[in-house]
Design a binder for these strands. Structure first.
Lengths: 197, 197
DNA sequence: TCCTTATTGCGACAGTTGTTGCAATAAGCT
DNA sequence: AGCTTATTGCAACAACTGTCGCAATAAGGA
């Protein structure tokens, strides 16, 4: 062992990068086509890469899924209409579609059954930007006095998202437009600032 | 083929029944001990039965899990205090514990990742009695005029359960007592009948 | 261009999963 | 008790999964 850490030179050159992208794309394609009924072997074949390569670079299933997600950003335009009620209705609609996406369902389902505790971190990282944007939306409404300031923004966001996650990934009964409206209305009622009716 | 359906006599006698129970118990034990990191082979070994027997009698994973669940009923005393607010707070507490049970988490996670569409039916059947009792609780409050009658009881129940399911089975961050209270308070605010303040 | 070495492909391996044919067992009936 | 046959155990099987050593390849620098 030499003193100055001999730190092996990384080599993120052309081929490795090409493989990264091919594998990530393969994961996404498979989620779309087969929901979550596929294995590492399928990913390797689809990417035109040897199984061993996939296992070496993505030791856990979570890392492999995360790789797929890294090039997958749904356009989640968190609304900012200036009014809490219309924001919530628009967001509920958006969320219902977001969680109906085969990739999203596949990711959620796969990671839910992953015994590796780090699997849940993958989901959290993936959702983080969306969650932050939604919390910001709640906070804007608080600033406008439309939402009672003492309520937990995190809990409000959970109350709006969790029902859709549960329905699409677990119960697997499609949500109707009416139900989307009902959820939004309940959230609006829950958050209304009593002093500004 | 004879004309009068020769309908093979069923034979639910001693041994078959004993095996049924042993396998069901094994499934529950394994959910408790290893959450959801176990396979059919483990179940068979634990039950003292040959793998092939398990595969023959419970062709799908869903049926196997359902067998375990058949002898597993958590005591979910849906509250009936006579007041909506205290009912909701008590129920939220109960639900948080209910979904923290290793068996419940294991079942949810396992079935979420099952590609067999009938897997979701297993969960629905398992939860049905609890859901019905909770809906009845909401309806009692409606009858008392504490909850706006026009609101969907099903949606209210989802709003109360979904956050806990998502947290325990997916995000895997334990819920704090404070968060339980926050969820309950939001549900109460959401459902309050305007005409009876 | 040539050299060093990180990374990939290849093939082999043990372990696991789900299936099947056949013989042994025991349930249900007379 | 004895007979019939549904059900189980057993063993072998192909398919799949994850790992490893080694040779081939190509990235990054001289």
């Amino acid at each position: 062992m030499s003193v100055d850490s001999p730190r092996s030179r990384s080599r993120p050159g052309g081929r490795s990068e090409r493989i990264r992208e091919a594998v990530g794309a393969a994961v996404l394609e498979l989620f779309r086509e087969r929901q979550f009924a596929f294995g590492v072997a399928d990913v390797a074949e689809r990417a035109g890469v040897h199984r061993a390569t996939v296992y070496r670079r993505w030791p856990t299933r979570g890392e492999l899924i995360a790789e797929g997600l890294s090039s997958f950003f749904q356009v989640v335009s968190v609304p900012d209409t200036g009014a809490w009620a219309s924001d919530v209705h628009a967001l509920a609609q958006t969320l219902a579609h977001f969680f109906s996406d085969p990739v999203e369902i596949g990711v959620v389902s796969s990671l839910a059954a992953d015994s590796d505790p780090r699997a849940s971190e993958v989901i959290q990282r993936h959702w983080q930007p969306y969650v932050e944007a939604m919390i910001a939306m709640v906070d804007r409404a608080k600033a406008r006095g439309e939402v009672e300031a003492g309520l937990s923004s995190g809990r409000i966001v959970e109350m709006l998202t969790a029902p859709f996650v549960m329905r699409t990934a677990l119960v697997r009964i499609p949500v109707t437009d009416r139900q989307i409206r009902e959820v939004a209305d309940l959230v609006i009622r829950a958050t209304a600032d009593d002093r500004h009716p």
